[in-house]
Design a protein around this nucleic acid. Structure first.
Length: 299
RNA sequence: GGUACCAUAGCUCAGUUGGUAGAGCAACGGACUGAAAAUCCGUGUGUCCCUGGUUCAAAUCCAGGUGGUACCA
């Protein structure tokens, strides 16, 4: 089979829209497998709060990149890109089409368009910069970047500490300007890509989000959060559905407030996801009950 | 039934001696190449309960109505 005949079908969408079931139905129809594109479902310790596919769903279709890591592992978008490309090499041997489903827009883009190859940065360097920011404020890291990479400083969101620190750590680790290491070019893939977004009217989506939080509570989310409480400072746990309950356990919120905040933060997350997908014209938009229409488009 | 208080943004409420209104939260829009469920930026969305009156001018003062809350019957 020629590589050109291979095709990755991306199913994106905001949280709680119904991606998991949709992807299972689609993959079943195509007799293929599913790659998850979800930055939090990769962790084995996080199941209920990340709405991972459950045992019966996993039985229907083979899923990849779900729960294969620990919250103690460091993971990022570049590792995800590499993991998916390796996986696709194997899956395309057996299948002409593979479904990738998830809501992490940056992760999806890394697979579809590629991401610049930059050297790994030592963890201690980032820690140092975080400390500098914490102790001396944002001005300190702004000035530092202005000095090391004035071109990038001009175009960056200067009030965003994570962007500043990222640029700084690359400059410091490589001795080069971050702006010069960014290629801004799209990587060619040896497979075709079709991108779909699932969406619902906002009131319906928000209703689903609120309801799903209640269901997570019934499924024992509180116990799951309790089991990882001691690791709450890990990045993997800077996650909606977990961080709010950490505050509850620390006595900063009532249980009811924590649940309300999870719903609010989930709604805001969904909004940010939609902003991300909207700006990318490659996406075709569908409702989660339009499986037939999606099959029509991809065949 | 009587008395008192209240009625302003989706919610909770500010609003000075009268000059057509503003905070918090929610909401909405956006950015985003190794933390991305992260992080950051921007935006008031209003029959000021209704009807009259006073006034150059009413969210504001007056009268009546409606609705609510509390207390007394």
């Amino acid at each position: 089979m020629l590589p050109e005949k291979k095709e990755l079908i991306v199913i994106a969408g905001p949280t709680a829209v119904g991606k998991t079931d949709f992807a299972i139905d689609l993959a079943t129809h195509l007799k293929t497998e599913i790659i998850s594109a979800d930055s939090r479902q990769v962790y084995k310790e996080l199941s209920i709060g990340t709405a991972k596919p459950d045992a019966s769903q996993l039985e229907k279709v083979k899923h990849h990149l779900v729960g294969h890591l620990s919250i103690h592992d460091y993971y990022n978008v570049a590792k995800f890109e590499r993991d998916v490309l390796l996986l696709l090499d194997k899956l395309f041997v057996k299948h002409d089409q593979v479904v990738m489903v998830g809501g992490s827009g940056l992760y999806i883009d890394a697979v579809c368009n590629g991401i610049d190859e930059l050297p790994d940065v030592d963890e201690s360097l980032r820690n140092e910069l975080n400390t500098l920011y914490k102790c001396e404020g944002i001005e300190a890291i702004q000035q530092k970047l202005k000095l090391l990479d004035p071109e990038y400083y001009e175009i960056i969101d200067q009030s965003n500490p994570k962007r500043l620190i990222r640029a700084l750590e690359v400059c410091l680790a490589t001795g080069k300007k971050y702006s010069q290491l960014r290629t801004n070019t799209r990587k060619e893939r040896n497979f075709k890509i079709q991108q779909m977004v699932l969406n619902l009217d906002r009131p319906i989506l928000f209703e689903r989000i609120n309801k799903r939080v209640d269901i997570m509570m019934e499924e024992g989310l509180l116990d799951e959060v309790k089991s990882v409480f001691e690791f709450r400072n890990l990045n993997a746990l800077n996650t909606v559905g977990y961080k709010e309950f950490f505050e509850y356990f620390l006595g900063k919120l009532t249980l009811e407030q924590a649940i309300t905040n999870i719903k609010t933060n989930s709604r805001r997350y969904a909004k940010r996801q939609l902003t991300w997908f909207r700006k990318n014209p490659n996406y075709k938009w569908f409702s989660p009950n339009e499986l037939d229409q999606v099959i029509e488009v991809i065949s």
